[in-house]
């Protein structure tokens, strides 16, 4: 603090409180709606405090199936989303750390070619090659499979760069020491590199878990069967504003459960989340 000016500090608190209200309100609103009966939800304005249908709504949503999308249970949808998010996060980390290891600690013909091949994938997000990528998945018979949902999203230029950047800061003496002690490359990788990369892996994991959980276009394309879809796509399928019998109470419960897991990951792993976000720079 350079000078003490209570007025502008008060103004700062004021803006922060407004900001928190704006940021938190949509989620609070949905939470309140998820504890009301359909009748209350459909007659605005909605009360500002939770109603008494919490146990009933959540019980029905979690233990009964969601009729609207063919009776798939919420548990199944949450399971699918978790599998997809975990597989993408772990897959990306494993694949990238191996590639970065190869690129930094070996010299071999074609090294730069491979490096550039990985780099160029940055410029080819799924949105610009929708149809042909979809066709590859159809030809491989991967529609409605966890493999189809996750494998195409696992290549990662950003994660590879992050690990490469980090590996370049590792003192060459460590490699020399390992070689003097006759440790092979894989032993060096397991016993020295992996333990040193722990924080980077944790940081990337948070970012990639959220990336996987919030995927939209890809699961929309490669799942036809509601049993295999993610909770976010299922939510989209349940909502229809034109249709009078959208089960709004179930929609609200599903929304809450669709946003809660990644929010928990961010809040509980906040330190790594901030580190991961600022270092990967997307």
């Amino acid at each position: 603090m350079i000078e003490n000016r209570p007025l502008s500090t008060a103004l700062a608190y004021f803006w922060l409180v407004i900001g928190v209200l704006v940021v938190a309100f949509p989620i609070w609103y949905t939470f309140v709606a998820s504890t009301q009966t359909v009748r209350t939800i459909l007659s605005p304005p909605l009360p500002l405090l939770p109603g008494d249908a919490f146990a009933d709504n959540y019980g029905r949503a979690v233990f009964g199936g969601l009729d609207r999308i063919g009776g798939v249970s919420l548990g199944r949808l949450l399971f699918n989303s978790t599998v997809v998010a975990l597989a993408i996060a772990v897959g990306k980390i494993v694949i990238s750390i191996l590639s970065a290891f190869a690129i930094v600690f070996f010299r071999f013909p074609g090294r730069m070619v491979f490096f550039w091949m990985i780099f160029i994938t940055l410029m080819l997000p799924v949105e610009v090659r929708i149809l042909p990528t979809y066709k590859v998945i159809v030809d491989l018979g991967l529609i409605d499979t966890y493999t189809g949902l996750t494998l195409p999203l696992m290549a990662s230029a950003t994660a590879t760069f992050l690990f490469r950047q980090f590996f370049l800061t590792i003192p060459p003496e460590l490699v020399e020491a390992a070689r003097v002690d006759a440790a092979g490359p894989m032993k060096f990788f397991r016993d020295i590199l992996l333990p040193l990369s722990k924080t980077n892996i944790a940081a990337l994991f948070v970012i990639l878990f959220i990336y996987g959980w919030t995927q939209y276009l890809w699961p929309l394309l490669v799942t036809n069967d509601n049993q295999m879809t993610t909770i976010i796509i299922a939510l989209r399928k349940m909502v229809s504003f034109a249709d009078a019998d959208t089960p709004w109470d179930m929609v609200m419960v599903t929304s809450m459960l669709a946003i809660l897991p990644p929010i928990l990951v961010v809040v509980l792993m906040q330190r790594w989340f901030v580190k991961g976000l600022v270092e990967t720079e997307k």
Binding site: I232, R236, A258, I259, F273, V274
Partner: peptide, 15 residues
């Protein structure tokens, strides 16, 4: 202030 980052864009739209 950081948690909307974890909300999927589609869900943010629906909220």
């Amino acid at each position: 202030l950081i948690w909307p980052y974890a909300v999927a864009p589609a869900v943010a739209g629906m909220l």
